[in-house]
Every structure is written in C-alpha cells, then in structure tokens.
C-alpha cells in the first residue's frame, strides 16, 4: 500500500457567484503521475489554486500527508506575464525561486543547483539569453526549471504543454517523467491533450460539471473522451 501525499475529502468551492468544485474526494498517491482532464471552465485551475492554498475550500477538507510541511509544491501556472524588456536572463529567472532571507546574491551551492537544473532542462546553452527573447517552448522549460529548482515533491503542470510543438512536448514530459520515476516526484498534469495524458500518466481524474470520475489512465476510454468533447 503506497502512502498518500494529498487527500481531498468532499471538497467544495464556490466563487461568490459560481459553484465550481462540488463534493470532490480524491486520494493522490505518492509518486503518482495524475492527469486532470475536463472541459474549459470546469474548475481545473481553481482546484490547483485550492491545492496551493491560494483559495480556501467552502467546505470539505484538503490535507497534505504526512503533514503540510512535508510537502513542497512546485507549480507551473497556465498564465504568466514576464515583461519582454526585463533584463532577466533565463538563468536569473530560474534562480528567482531561491527566495529566502540571506545574502542578496546566490551562494555557491545555490548557483550549482541552478546550473544542474538548467542542464537537466537542456537550457544550459541559452542560460544567458533574456527570457523575454526566448521562444514559447524555451520559456515553458524555464518555467519548469524554476518550479523544480527547490526540489519540490509535488509538481503541478497547468496546461504547460499547450503551446509546444510535438517534439518539445515529449522532451518536457520525458524529463518530468524521469524525475517522477527516479526521485519519487508526484505530478499533477492538467491537460486537454488526451493522447499525451495516456502516454505519460498513471491515473486520471476527469472533471465535468457536478460529476467526477477517476481511474487508471488505461481506463480512460475514447467513449468518455468523446462525451467530454461533445459536452
């Protein structure tokens, strides 16, 4: 029996004018690669914001296991605005995530970690390039590198592959999958790309208004996907 890292119990959430999540229960296992699918506006990003504790559940419970401090979350958001004129190199951008008290500049071991993650994400050759001038795919990799920098054990990708070409998608997810396998990184992958989810995920959680379904990714049949696309 594998341990859980995150437990949702009858979780509900409503914006003042709109019920979004309704009575959702789910048990996320440590080391799992979970794909969350569902139509636009069904509440996927909202669920992620609940997990990040940016929003508070209206009712129900959301618990990290064994405790909150044991879980470090890395998040690659769906939208981001980094000004294209900023003098922020890719390397600089990735290092931002070492936000803590201490000397203003990065220490030797912190710089080493930045280099390591830049190599892993294949950004090392362009690390000096301003982020504003990087291509869409390079930016996504930089976002991922920043999220991975501080060694999270739960990584959330919110449609991070949507704007990537097929090769870049594979590269990015291969990397995530590799860390998922070797370092017990738990991954939540929000996507509309069902074939991609089939290829990388272990499990799925399918959100539709007022109804949730979860299972092994192999059980996510074309029929269900079709029903989703027609909705």
């Amino acid at each position: 029996m594998t341990d859980s890292i995150l437990q949702l119990k009858q979780l509900s959430f409503a914006f003042p004018d709109k019920q979004v999540i309704n009575d959702l229960s789910y048990n996320l296992k440590k080391g799992d690669f979970l794909s969350i699918v569902g139509e636009n506006g069904v509440g996927k990003t909202t669920l992620m914001r609940l997990i990040l504790q940016e929003l508070k559940p209206t009712s129900g419970e959301l618990a990290f296991l064994p405790n909150r401090n044991a879980v470090k979350v890395g998040y690659v958001p769906q939208f981001r605005n980094v000004d294209s004129e900023y003098p922020l190199s890719i390397q600089d951008f990735v290092g931002l995530n070492f936000a803590r008290f201490g000397v203003p500049w990065l220490t030797g071991s912190e710089r080493k970690r930045v280099r390591e993650i830049l190599k892993e994400t294949k950004l090392n050759d362009i690390r000096k390039r301003p982020l504003g001038q990087a291509s869409g795919g390079e930016k996504q990799k930089a976002y991922l590198a920043q999220a991975l920098l501080d060694r999270p054990n739960l990584l959330i990708l919110d449609e991070s592959t949507a704007s990537l070409d097929p090769v870049a998608k594979t590269e990015l997810l291969d990397l995530v999958k590799q860390i998922n396998n070797h370092q017990q990184l738990t991954v939540i992958f929000v996507t509309h790309d069902i074939p991609l989810a089939r290829r990388y995920a272990d499990d799925y959680l399918f959100l539709s208004p007022g109804h949730y379904e979860a299972g092994k990714i192999t059980e996510l049949t074309n029929e269900k996907v079709g029903a989703m696309n027609n909705a």
Binding site: F79, R80, F93, N97, G102
Partner: peptide
Amino acid sequence: RFLKFDSFDPVGARV
C-alpha cells in the same frame, strides 16, 4: 531575494 522574485515574476512569486 523576495523583492526580486515578486517584482520580476509576480505570478511565480504568488504561486
């Protein structure tokens, strides 16, 4: 470090 993160990448800092 906090100020730099929040000023140059507000979305990242918030999440």
